[in-house]
Design a protein around this nucleic acid. Structure first.
Length: 441
RNA sequence: GCCCUUAUCGUCUAGCGGCUAGGACAGCGGCUUCUCAAGCCGUUAACCGGGGUUCGAUUCCCCGUGAGGGCGCCA
């Protein structure tokens, strides 16, 4: 899910990956950095490794094509030449298929083409089983500008790096017959193939497969939105795979232990941001308060309110303790706690209309304002007792004061318990806010 | 147009010949409650259609159909 492809050499419990992205429009160094950053953020162990033989462990066709690797491609081209499997046409070098040749009209391309009659290519796939596909046309392996083509470099790189497993999206399944023919041409046994299902766009994103250009397809985005990496890993793992029972919440170690290629589903899965959000909340709830505080600090450091919020560590910690069990994602934190950082918070007009339209809020407000200075603000319980005592004196309940008081001190109807807000704000500020709200009408 | 893959609730899925078709997200209802969430309880909702095979098909086979992908001197 992270790369859409994974070319790996499995050696004694370790995978050596070949990172390949030949997108010419992209700066490759930046792309590699993106991958490394994502891996680190996701909590995966990796190191860049050596770069022997000019065929990088980080081997990628793009940046190395012209320099270090050109000789390797020439070397493999020479092998095909010696085997009589290539020819030149229109300045390009073509791979020659074995079999009887005939001319036919191609409806798709609207032109006469030469086809080759040969047996079907058999692809042994770990996930899809035995797949047969006809490969019936010679194809270019070196363009007329001298550069090798993807299919060719792909296979050569894999051979040179002794790649043992090719795990990639199902969209490459049709290309695989070309690759298998090339392996045969080189006289090399192909690696193990595993074509995994694709992640499809959710309806909001459009139709079809998710590709790296789509919003929400990059790990980077979830990182910047402060999702918990363990939640994202967990959710992604569940797209097209399951542990075999009803369990869904699993950490990376569990997933690694339980995952097996043949257990992967064969059908594509649609991305569902709501389920991801739910998973994220589950992980957020399970976080230790210390860890939550740490992440909240990182988060606020990038927020406009951050300077004010982080100015008083004890106060900040107090508020984070209130927020953790209530929010669904870290990205809600600034909005959820805004009224704690400034006296200049906004009042939700809709909530105000609703609260002020019920009962006698102005009277309750006045009563509360009068009572607050005499209340014990030392704990939630003492504040609750104070308000309840006031209420009982008037033959009312806590609830009769809650809504208007909350609106006055926070400007909204959503938040931690009123008593906690009172306690954290402190007697002085509560009185001040109640008064200000009353004055504003 | 040709080729490949695929098909269970709206979504992610369990099921590998006989099940009251299970779970999760979302939805709905309730409980709890100082708000909002969360939590708990309950509930709506699915085997794409048609042929076979079989005593018996969600499950195996074939044909449709839907979904996705591939058919470049892109990767």
């Amino acid at each position: 899910a992270l790369f859409n492809w994974l070319y790996a050499r499995h050696t004694g419990g370790k995978f050596i990956l070949r990172i390949e992205d030949t997108d010419q429009a992209r700066n490759s160094e930046a792309f590699l950095k993106l991958i490394y950053d994502s891996l680190s953020w996701l909590g995966m162990d990796w190191d860049e490794g050596p770069n022997p033989d000019g065929v990088g462990e980080r081997g990628s066709f793009g940046p190395y094509r012209q320099s270090q690797r050109a000789d390797i491609y020439q070397h493999y081209l020479q092998k095909l030449r010696e085997a009589g499997r290539v020819y030149e046409k229109d300045g390009a070098i073509w791979f020659k298929l074995l079999g009887e040749r005939y001319q036919t009209f191609d409806e798709h391309r609207k032109k006469e083409v030469e086809k080759v009659k040969s047996g079907p290519v058999v692809i042994a796939d770990q996930i899809r089983g035995r797949v047969e596909r006809m490969e019936d046309e010679d194809f270019v392996i070196f363009r007329s500008d001298g550069n090798p083509v993807f299919h060719f470099v792909n296979v050569v790189d894999d051979i040179a790096m002794q790649v043992s497993h090719i795990i990639r999206g199902e969209d490459h399944l049709s290309n695989t017959s070309k690759h298998v023919r090339l392996y045969e041409g080189f006289g090399v046994t192909p690696p193990v193939f595993a074509h995994i299902p694709l992640i499809l766009k959710s309806p909001e994103m459009g139709q079809g497969k998710m590709s790296k250009r789509d919003k929400g397809a990059l790990i980077e985005e979830y990182q910047s939105r402060h999702f918990l990496p363990e939640a994202l890993v967990n959710y992604l793992a569940l797209l097209g795979w399951n542990a075999g029972d009803d369990r869904e919440k699993m950490d990376i170690a569990d997933i690694v232990r339980l995952f097996d290629l043949p257990g992967v589903n064969q059908s594509n899965a649609k991305f569902d941001g709501r389920k991801l959000a739910h998973m994220n909340m589950q992980y957020l709830l399970a976080l230790s308060p210390e860890r939550f505080l740490e992440l909240a600090r990182d988060y606020f450091q990038r927020q406009p309110a951050g300077v004010v919020a982080l100015a008083n560590p004890a106060y900040f910690q107090e508020i984070m303790r209130l927020a953790q069990p209530k929010i669904k994602g870290l990205e809600e934190l600034a909005a959820y706690t805004g009224y704690f950082w400034s006296e200049d918070f906004s009042v939700d007009p809709k909530v105000k209309e609703k609260v002020m339209g019920k009962g006698e809020p102005q009277v309750r407000l006045a009563e509360l304002l009068a009572a607050v200075p005499g209340m014990d603000f030392s704990s939630d319980a003492s504040i609750e007792a104070g308000i309840k005592a006031l209420a009982e004196g008037k033959g009312l309940g806590f609830g009769d004061y809650q809504a208007v008081a909350r609106l006055a001190v926070s400007g909204t109807n959503a938040g931690p318990s009123l008593t906690s807000i009172f306690r954290v704000l402190g007697q002085g500020r509560v009185s001040e806010r109640l008064r200000k709200f009353q004055a504003a009408g």
